[in-house]
């Protein structure tokens, strides 16, 4: 299940992920959740966004680096191994596959848009309607559906992180969302059965991640 990383050189035992979203949709948090999930699996990881000022609603990008060794790269990611498109309307205004390595993985939230996926046939394409999943569990912030949690669940289908790690990371990141709240609040909750003890919003987030994982479809090739 987990992406195998060769030990031969830095380029090969490292995975670089770019996430496309709009300001306010939680792209940075998604990058953090992926990095935390990898970290829970004993890997090194970093997460960051486009360095600079962001505006709500405008297209933005955030990034995750995962590696078997200490990450010493602080430069921007220009040739990702994997691209995650959180916002269904963004692929028509941004070249989401820019720099994506040939055969690289592309996970798209298709929403209710009729996104033309045929143009991505050079890549390994995965599709999910994360917006519908989010709305089904009423995951909204300021009236806007939260897309990062279902997309992180769906990302587990790419084999970069396991679904269990994704769910634990979601718990950790959402539980520690406030810097003042003790990060330890939900950290003890590693067993994902028996989540009845969790607050209902946490439980809904986990269910959304799991449903998005199940509904993610690979559109070409095997699997």
């Amino acid at each position: 299940m987990v992406w195998s990383m060769s030990e031969s050189d830095e380029g090969k035992h490292e995975i670089e992920i770019r996430i496309h979203s709009r300001g306010g949709q939680g792209g940075v948090t998604a990058a953090k959740m992926l990095a935390v999930a990898a970290s829970l699996e004993g890997k090194y990881s970093t997460a960051f966004s486009i360095y600079g000022a962001e505006r709500r609603g405008s297209p933005t990008a955030s990034f995750t680096r995962i590696s078997n060794r200490e990450i010493r790269k602080y430069s921007q990611i220009r040739k990702p191994d994997c691209v995650i498109v959180m916002d269904p309307t963004i692929a028509s205004v941004v070249d989401v596959t820019e720099g994506l390595k040939p055969g690289g993985k592309l996970l798209i939230n298709v929403g209710n848009n009729s996104t033309d996926l045929e143009r991505f046939r050079d890549y390994e394409v995965y599709a999910v309607d994360a917006t519908r999943v989010s709305l089904r569990f009423d995951l909204k912030v300021a009236g806007i559906p939260v897309l990062n949690v279902p997309m992180v669940g769906a990302a587990a289908r790419l084999g970069i992180i396991s679904l269990d790690s994704a769910k634990q990371a979601i718990l950790k990141v959402l539980g520690g969302g406030s810097v003042v709240t003790s990060l330890a609040r939900y950290a003890g909750t590693t067993a994902l059965d028996g989540t009845e003890s969790l607050p209902s919003t946490m439980r809904k987030n986990l269910m959304a991640a799991e449903l998005a994982y199940k509904e993610t479809k690979r559109l070409n090739g095997s699997g």
Binding site: A35, Y44, S45, A47, S49
Partner: peptide
């Protein structure tokens, strides 16, 4: 610590 490249990068 360098702005953004370190101040805004998340690591364990």
């Amino acid at each position: 610590l360098e702005g953004f490249v370190l101040s805004h990068v998340m690591q364990p």
